[in-house]
């Protein structure tokens, strides 16, 4: 059964934030992230008859968004570090949540973009999508041990980089 136009628009509006955020955090580039996110939704429409439930749609979208973003990184030999600062500043402008250091968060996002793809993907799925390691393993088609290892090393690397650059950040702010 094909998805009707209205229903399709409803699905886009319900899941665009998740799909776009996954693509953006993996690619680090607004334009490419939007392109990938659009492709994911059109792919959803073409596969519509196989999607049974809301949970299935969400799982499908997250998985396809992740894989299409990885494809885009590899295909275009993208270096997300170069575009990271621009959108991070845009995203955090005027973002004054209670007790949240937006400068620190912006730094963490920039550091995330410097992680190798194999570590960045599980880190994004763990800390943005709040998936558990076994859920990430299923989504990526990897073993749980491999995902845990990438997560562990990714987090360790991120923390080490943060320890170095945050000191610089503190010095800059002072």
């Amino acid at each position: 059964m094909a998805i009707a136009d209205d229903e399709f628009r409803g699905l886009i509006e319900a899941h665009q934030r998740m799909v776009f955020s996954v693509a953006l955090r993996l690619l680090g580039d607004y334009a490419t992230a939007e392109e990938v996110a659009q492709d994911v939704f059109l792919e959803l429409h073409r596969s519509g008859e196989r999607l049974a439930s809301e949970a299935h749609v969400r799982y499908w979208l997250r998985r396809v968004a992740t894989h299409r973003s990885i494809d885009a990184i590899r295909r275009r030999a993208l270096r997300p570090e170069s575009a990271a600062e621009e959108w991070i500043e845009e995203q955090h402008a005027g973002d004054d949540g209670p007790g949240i250091d937006t400068g620190l968060q912006a730094r963490l996002e920039m550091l995330l973009q410097t992680l190798p793809e194999s570590m960045r993907v599980p880190v994004v799925l763990r800390y943005q999508e709040e998936l558990l390691p076994d859920e990430i393993a299923r989504l990526l088609g990897q073993s749980v041990a491999s995902v845990k290892s990438h997560l562990h090393h990714g987090l360790k690397l991120l923390r080490r980089k943060a320890a170095i650059t945050m000191k610089e950040y503190v010095r800059e702010s002072a």
């Binding site: 136009d5 399709f8 628009r9 886009i12 509006e13 665009q16 934030r17 998740m18 776009f20 955020s21 953006l24 955090r25 607004y30 939007e34 996110a37 659009q38 939704f41 059109l42 995203q91 949540g97 949240i100 620190l104 968060q105 912006a106 963490l108 996002e109 995330l112 880190v123 994004v124 800390y127 943005q128 709040e130 987090l155 991120l158 923390r159 943060a162």
Partner: peptide
Amino acid sequence: SFERELTRAMRRVDPPEGFADRVM
């Protein structure tokens, strides 16, 4: 605490205005 900070830093973001229209 580092992971909690990371989770806060990685909140989902909205796509650019008019995203659904552009897909359609």
